[in-house]
Each structure stands twice: as C-alpha cells, then as structure tokens.
Design a protein around this nucleic acid. Structure first.
Lengths: 337, 337
DNA sequence: TTGTAGGCGTTATCAG
DNA sequence: CTGATAACGCCTACAA
C-alpha cells in the first residue's frame, strides 16, 4: 500500500485536487456535500498531506521552535508538554533549539542561522532568551513571529506571563504574617528579568510593612543549587542570622535547606525557607517547601496558541496574564522563640 | 535581500544546479576545484538549502522524533541535550512525540499516525516505549528506522544501553561491603525492562554473598516519589527493619529518605539508602545520595549518531554499551551498631 | 462553488 | 566528472 497523495483522493471523490486542498485546509467555499465526499475519500485512503510539499508550495514548515538557554529540567518538561498540547491539536511539530545568551556568538546570529536552516514558522522564547530586548526588536524587524513566555516587556506583541512581582510580595507578606522581621532575600541570575521582578516584589512588601531591607541579608544568586549553598554559608556567618530566607527560586532554596540541614538547623523551627516556582524538588525534600506555583504547562499551551494564531492570521497583539498560586508547605513557620 | 536558492549559487559559480546539489550533499564525483568554487559562491550568497524542497524531492524530512512516555524531567533534559548535539552537527531537527504505552489507543497506532503526518526519518525510543517488543517488531516490519535507548533486546538492530544488571549488582555489593545483610529492594515499574534488570542484579549479588532475599523486604514500586514513600512506610512497620534500602531509581529513593527523615531516622547512621540514575535530586537532598550514574546525555548523542548513520546508509546493526559509574555519597554507611 | 495551469526548490535519472 | 530535464506533492493565482 503505497502512500496516498492528493490526486488519489481527488479521483476517488470525483473532484479536482484543488477542491481536496480546500477541504484539507478548512477553507470556505466548498459545498457541504462535496466536503463530505472528500473527507470520506481521504479517510478511506488514509490520506495525510505531505508536509514537505505543503511547506514548499506555501512557504511554511508547520514547525515551531522552542528557544531556551539552560533552563531547569522541570521547567523544560512542563513548558514542552504545554506547547505540545497545542501543536498536537493544530497539526504542528515542535523542534528544540538551545541557544547561548552570553556566548561568543551573538544570540541573533545563532537564531538567524537556525531560521535560515530550519525555516520554522515561529519561535517561543523562554527566560532568559526573552529578556534580551534588543534581540527581540531585531526579530520584529526581520518579521520573525515570536511569543515571549516571560515578564512583560512593552516591546512584545505576544506574551504569556505571571505577575512575578505581586507573587513575590505575597510570599513576603506570608513571612511577615508569621512574625518574621529579619527576612533575607536571595536574588536570581541578573540576566533573568523575572529575578528582578521578584526582588522588587519582596521590597514592595517589606516597605509596606515598614521593615528594613538590610544589605547583609540580600545575596546575589544565580538560580543554581550551588549559589543557594553559598548564600546560606554567608547567612550562617551573620549574627544575628535572619529568621527567614526567601529565595528567588526553588533550586537555590533547596541549596539553602541542604546547607542548613547539614549544619544542624531545623526548618522551620530555627529558620524558615521559602522558594519560587514549585519545581518537583520543593515537594521532595524534607521538609516540603513553601513556594509559588507557576503554571508553566498552561503558559506553554497558551503561548503556542497565540503564536500560531498570529502566524496564521498575520495579526495580533496579545498579552496573557496567568494566575499564580501559593503553595504553603512545611518549610515556613512562625518566628523562632 | 531575498533568500538565495540553488540556481543563484549555480549561476554565481558557473555550474549547473546538479553540481551545487552534489557539493551541498557531500556527494563524490566533483572535482576539488569545482567544489571550492561552489562552496565559495554558496557562502557568499549565504545559501542554505530549503528543507521542504529537499524533503519533497528526496522523500526525507531531516527530522527525527524522540518518543517517550512520562519520563523524569532530568532524564528528558539530558537525553534531549545529547540528541541535539548530534542533530546540530548533522543538520537534523528533533521533534518531540509523547506517547502513551498503556492507553486506549495502541502504541503502534499512535506512532503510525504520527509518522504519516510528520514523516520523520527515524525514531528514538526511550523507556518504557522501547520495552514494547511487539511494537518494535512491527516498526521493523514497516521499515521504520529506530534506535532503542534501553536494555538490550535481541530484536533491536540499533541500541544504546548500560549494563543495568551489573550496575545494580555492584551497588548491592557496596552495601554488603558496608556490612549490611538485611537489604531491602524497591522494584520499579514493571513496564520498564530496566527495572527488572536492576532487580536481577540485586539478586545476583545477594546470592553471590549467600544472603537471603526476604520477600518482606522486596517492595513493588512505580519509579515515582510517592511509591517510594509507600515502600518506606511498609519498611517502617517491619521488625526488625532493614538496615539498608536499595531503590531501583532515585525518585523512589528520595521518597524513602523523605519519609525516614520525617519519622526521625538519621541517614545513614540508622539506615542506608541508595538509588539509581544520579538525577539532580540525588545531590540536592540531605544527605546526598549514593547512586549509579547513567550517562544519559552521551547515550542520547550516540543513539542519534547510529540512527542517522543507519538512515543515511541503509545499513547497520549496532549495539553500544556505555559504561556507568558509581557515585558514592553520604546516604550509605556502615551497619548501625 | 469548482477546476486548470504554473511554480515552489531540491534531488534523481540518464545522458554526455 | 558534469549537466539537462523530469519528478516530488501541494498551493496560489486566475478562470470558468
């Protein structure tokens, strides 16, 4: 059984190939009965349009690319799952394109090369790729469709995001409500816009409650486990130590918790630790970590939806804000006596 | 600057398009000087072959697919990275195809549908997809190229694997060397061939040392964190409890460790826990876990290499065994006094 | 609402 | 070693 092509379907249905084409692409101007006939024939022959041929003729590939630079594995898994949900539904494929934001080769060049080669129909940018404003403006200039899964940026036509700032403020409020005053904050990689927003949210909440931001308590992190370890070591040398530590992501927070556990501190009795992202590790360590849940999978799904919509209707300026929610677990507690 | 096509290059180089085609595809039978000329022209024009056209004419897509069913995020991230290394080097793209091994729709049907639509040139199967022998024999029958990243299986023409059985035996020996005799084992998802091999390795080592396999100490797990928790609860009810627990993967082992920590047990002073896979969690919990390192990234890279080689040379029967190695960390220690 | 002709950019065939 | 020419399967005009 050799593969059926459009002519076979046209013959079987007794129509021209153009009509088959119309039906397969859900174009209007086809009589309902004709449509049925064609659909039946296509089904009978198990006909699937050849993407290469479609691509060649229509100058499309029915492929989108996910651009990323060293994200956490669980972020990656979730966003991929979300994107694939949309792709599957709309007959698109997703290819992966790892890039390096701070490398020898400029980001734009990496992506242009990739585009020239792969000719995908659109790009999904994840942090920190989406934090490069210049890069994005160049994409726009070159008319390359993209969507940012990221903090807001007035330059983006298409974006999906959560309110990182407000989420961080709420988390800080949670610690304040528990009675904490000496609250430490571990910043994230400065290349990530989200990290800054989370810090801003922390500051918002501290100020609102008239609590001081002590520079000793603000550590520079890199969103990595090891940078969490280092931050914790610094806090350990302080006297008095903070009573609560808010880390800009879970990865660092788990580093903090490991170091504190190693040194014999009990969480949250001696000190509270909270994170951000709700990655699996936050549930799997002991004690389970209080953190902010970011609906990454939905964000991927929606990002892909608005991207494909824009690609196929050459239109659209759309920013979707998705609600986050707090996961209160056991790593945060009332102020030690 | 509109995109250059093969004719432009041919004109500039003063040759026919066929010659350009030969050069671009590294075919033989082109004079070195001619080749140079063409390469220079192509470079000048920044010419990249159109994949859709190549695909249409050559009946290829220059795309391969990664098939998976609910793997761990870090396994996923690593294998993707490895595969992409090869793809990047050889000008291929990778698309993702999640499938369901135990779903309503038969695996074969899912994949056939996918193939008909996407027409990728080959498949990379990860556990547990690669554990479905019947499915694989059907792929062979349909002449669909694939490589298994998995336990050996006489049916596979192409495979990359580690010796799970021997690795598990070595890990068991490690525990035995530490003086343990009451060693528990938590099995993995029965749908995964690797789980069985690991258990076999455990049995091998126990028998070799004339230690009994006590049925109370063998738990059925599902490779999930929660199933680790459940297994630990069962061990907690035993009297005497095992002095060491070998979990068929890290995920379950971390569940065990969480439950034991929660109940106030000290690891490894009171009880040793070891895992398998060396996922990030194994380093990030406290204490860091002794486990087997599986070089997933290399496996992905190599799997892709032998797949592409087979695809492009319609040949090959090749099984690569990659060395594993032990990561001795702090979760395993000598027998409690 | 439907059909016809032409072209999309490569690769394959088969001469030269 | 090199080159004309015909596919490859579909879509976009433009007609009918």
């Amino acid at each position: 059984m050799t593969k059926a092509i459009i002519d076979d379907v046209a013959n079987l249905a007794g129509v021209s190939i153009k009509t088959v084409s119309r039906v397969m692409n859900k174009e209007p101007n086809v009589r309902a009965t004709t449509r049925e006939k064609v659909l039946k024939a296509a089904d009978e022959l198990n006909y699937k349009p050849n993407q290469s041929a479609r691509g060649l003729a229509g100058n499309k590939t029915y492929l989108i690319a996910l651009l990323y630079d060293n994200p956490g594995p669980s972020y990656m898994a979730n966003i991929q799952t979300g994107i694939l949900e949309t792709c599957e539904a709309q007959g698109y494929g997703m290819v992966l394109k790892p890039v390096t934001c701070e490398g020898e080769v400029p980001l734009l060049e990496q992506v242009l090369d990739f585009m020239a080669h792969s000719r995908v129909d659109g790009l999904i940018l994840t942090p920190p790729v989406c934090d490069d404003v210049i890069f994005k403006s160049l994409l726009t200039e070159k008319n390359i469709p993209y969507v940012s899964v990221a903090p807001p940026d007035r330059g983006d036509k298409l974006a999906v995001l959560i309110d990182d700032r407000r989420a961080a403020a709420e988390m800080t409020d949670h610690l304040i409500d528990l009675g904490h005053k000496k609250i430490a904050f571990i910043k994230g990689d400065p290349a990530h816009g989200a990290g800054k927003l989370r810090y801003n949210g922390f500051v918002d909440a501290m100020k609102k409650s008239n609590l001081p931001i002590e520079s000793d308590l603000i550590e520079e992190g890199m969103f990595t486990f090891d940078s969490g370890i280092r931050a914790a070591e610094n806090y350990l040398n302080l006297d008095p130590m903070p009573t609560a530590i808010f880390s800009a992501n879970d990865e660092m927070a788990s580093g903090v918790m490991q170091k504190l556990s190693e040194k014999g501190y009990h969480i949250p009795k001696d000190i509270s630790v909270v994170g951000f992202d709700d990655t699996p590790i936050s549930r799997q360590i002991w004690p389970p970590m209080t953190t902010v849940h970011q609906p990454v999978r939905s964000m991927g799904r929606l990002a892909c939806e608005i991207l494909l919509h824009a690609v196929n209707n050459r239109e659209g300026e759309r920013t979707l804000e998705i609600p986050f929610n707090m996961e209160f677990r056991k790593s945060s507690g009332t102020l030690p006596a």
